[in-house]
Design a protein around this nucleic acid. Structure first.
Lengths: 156, 156
DNA sequence: ACTGAAATCGCTAAAAC
DNA sequence: GTTTTAGCGATTTCAGT
């Protein structure tokens, strides 16, 4: 699928305001409402728009800690990796996980309410991940930037 | 503001489907449409719901690389930190940034299309950040999990 | 104070072009 | 891609609990 200037503009607006009315979106990109809606549907069906979500203020919900965990596995076999990844995908506490090049095998990003809550997560989630040789946790003091918008064209 | 069971249910549904029709949301939480909408507006005004966004598939948009950058600053003065943080906030290429406890001062998470694109970002964005003593970049091979939903109650 | 019901208003979505 | 139109959902107002 090939994206033209208008498609990119649609995506850029939607990733900043996922609930904009189609009529307003159409205005902003200079299209009629139906033409605009057709493009949005096409982008959805192509999977370029994955989904629409509400972003919540995690601090106001009591999640004050952000923790990054570097993980080394006991081995590099396909099976070891797959077991680990499946377990990660099942844990709702793990916000992000990447297979890494370099020192660590994986990096996890998760949030906790406080140190006690992190202990719970460590015990019930992290310690149960299979094939883990070593874990190194780093704690964030304060979030500076949290962005979900992918740069699409003209941006600082 | 204090959240009851229904508020949490509303939040949990909205952070998985930010475009659900209010009538359907009302059904799922067992409220009338108007009562439900009132609660949603209250949650928005309290800032617990920060915003609604479309999540895009970054791979389908050509962003194949995820990079984590650990940063140490030349000093720890208020001014050094503030200058750095302001510059980070201005860069649309930086997806996440946290002030850290431990080894590094900051950790950045950004995406790039390919190594050449990362070079551009490094040159135009990272290298221009003020007060940086040392940077260590780690590259992701593959994203395993990307989640935006904060655990609210019953979850794996 | 908070909920539910009803009426209005505006938007979505599909058809025709 | 645009215009038109029917139908549905959002939003507001008002009354009940």
């Amino acid at each position: 699928m090939t994206l033209d200037r208008i498609d990119r503009k649609i995506l850029d607006i939607l990733q900043r305001d996922g609930r904009i009315a189609n009529a307003d979106l159409a205005d902003k990109v200079g299209l009629s409402a139906s033409a605009c809606l057709r493009r949005v549907r096409t982008l959805e069906e192509a999977g370029i728009i994955e989904r629409y979500v509400a972003l919540l203020d995690q601090r106001k919900l009591g999640r004050l800690m952000d923790v990054f965990v570097e993980i080394s596995l006991t081995g590099q076999s396909q099976e070891t990796l797959e077991n680990f990844e499946r377990a990660v995908a099942r844990s709702s506490e793990i916000m992000e996980c990447f297979l890494m090049a370099g020192d660590a095998d994986y990096i996890l990003h998760l949030t906790a309410e406080d140190p006690l809550d992190f202990e719970r997560i460590h015990r019930d989630h992290l310690a149960r991940l299979p094939g883990v040789l070593r874990m190194k946790s780093s704690f964030a003091i304060r979030p500076i930037v949290r962005r979900t918008a992918i740069p699409l064209d003209g941006g600082g």
